[in-house]
Every structure is written in structure tokens, then in C-alpha cells.
């Protein structure tokens, strides 16, 4: 699957950014840079073998594949749910007011194989995917003792979970 963004990289980026490369040695003197940031993974040059970064990227890739599978599952659930809803004669293009989703409602709906509840579950799965990605990144940062980034991930998680509470006040 290709994202929308991928097509936005026309006109080779190597060309226009050429000058940047040539100024890089000035901008990043090896000595001071290492001095300023000793724990930075990988230096400014040389092979960055088995750095925390590459482990991170490896695990992230596995997770990203897993999450893409989640998207496909969600897609399938949406199709099933919509078909079920239509067969039960639910008014299409839901003109009714969808109430804020409660977990009890969702559980009841799933138990009776209600089409709308199936789609709701699929949509929640979709929303959960970035949340899980952030959680996984946070764990990986924490394991590589990258405190600042682990805390950032935690902060994002708190915001994401908080967002589910915030909307209830505006309803």
C-alpha cells in the first residue's frame, strides 16, 4: 500500500539539496559534536552497526507490518458490518444521531452481531493502531535507556487516552 505522500517526492531531492551536503562538514564538526552529545547513537560518520537506532527500526518494522495487517482486518470487519447492517434494514447513511460510544453498548451490539457495532469495533481497531505504535516505541526507547524519548512517548499516550474523555464534555 502506498501512502498519499509517496507521490510527493518528485524532482530528485538529491539535486536541490546538494549544497547542503557540502556544508555538512562545517555544520557538524566531528569533535565538538561528539563532545556535545556523547550518548548520541552513532557518530557523525562511520558505520552505525547494531546501534539502538537500528534495533529500534527493526522492531518498528515488524510492528508496522503487524499494524498494516490490523488495517486489513479492520477493513474486512467494516465490509462485514456494513453488509450485516444493510441486511437488517438499517437506514443507510445513518440519519439518526449516533450516541457517544460506550463500551457496554459496543459489547451488547457485538454479542447480538449488530452490524453497526461490528463497524464500530473495526473503527476502534483503526484508532488503536497509532496508539499501539506509540506505546511500542515508548517501550523500545525505555529499553535503550533513552529517557527523554520514552517520556515523550508516555506523554503522547496520555494525550491519546485523554482524548477519549475530552469529547464527552462537549457532547
Amino acid at each position: 500500500m502506498s501512502g498519499s505522500g509517496e507521490l510527493r517526492e518528485p524532482r530528485g531531492f538529491d539535486g536541490p539539496r546538494g549544497p547542503v551536503e557540502s556544508t555538512a562538514p562545517d555544520a557538524l564538526p566531528p569533535g565538538p559534536a561528539e563532545h556535545a552529545a556523547p550518548p548520541a547513537p552513532g557518530g557523525s560518520q562511520g558505520p552505525r552497526a547494531a546501534s539502538a537506532e537500528s534495533v529500534l527500526a527493526g522492531v518498528e518494522l515488524t510492528l508496522a507490518r503487524l499494524f498494516r495487517a490490523g488495517v486489513v482486518v479492520s477493513l474486512a470487519l467494516i465490509v462485514v458490518g456494513v453488509i450485516v447492517a444493510l441486511r437488517r434494514g438499517v437506514e443507510p447513511m445513518g440519519t439518526g444521531d449516533p450516541a457517544p460510544l460506550s463500551f457496554r453498548q459496543l459489547a451488547d451490539g457485538l454479542r447480538t452481531l449488530d452490524g453497526e457495532a461490528i463497524v464500530d469495533a473495526a473503527l476502534l481497531l483503526l484508532v488503536a493502531i497509532p496508539v499501539l505504535r506509540v506505546a511500542a516505541a515508548g517501550i523500545l526507547f525505555a529499553r535503550s535507556r533513552d529517557r527523554i524519548f520514552a517520556l515523550l512517548a508516555l506523554l503522547v499516550l496520555v494525550i491519546l487516552l485523554g482524548s477519549f474523555v475530552v469529547g464527552r464534555f462537549g457532547a
Partner: peptide
């Protein structure tokens, strides 16, 4: 979602 602005059938 928590405000009820996500209609599953849309």
C-alpha cells in the same frame, strides 16, 4: 468518537 460524531455507517 467520544462526542458521538463518528457514525459507523458513514
Amino acid at each position: 468518537i467520544s462526542r458521538g460524531d463518528v457514525d459507523p455507517l458513514i
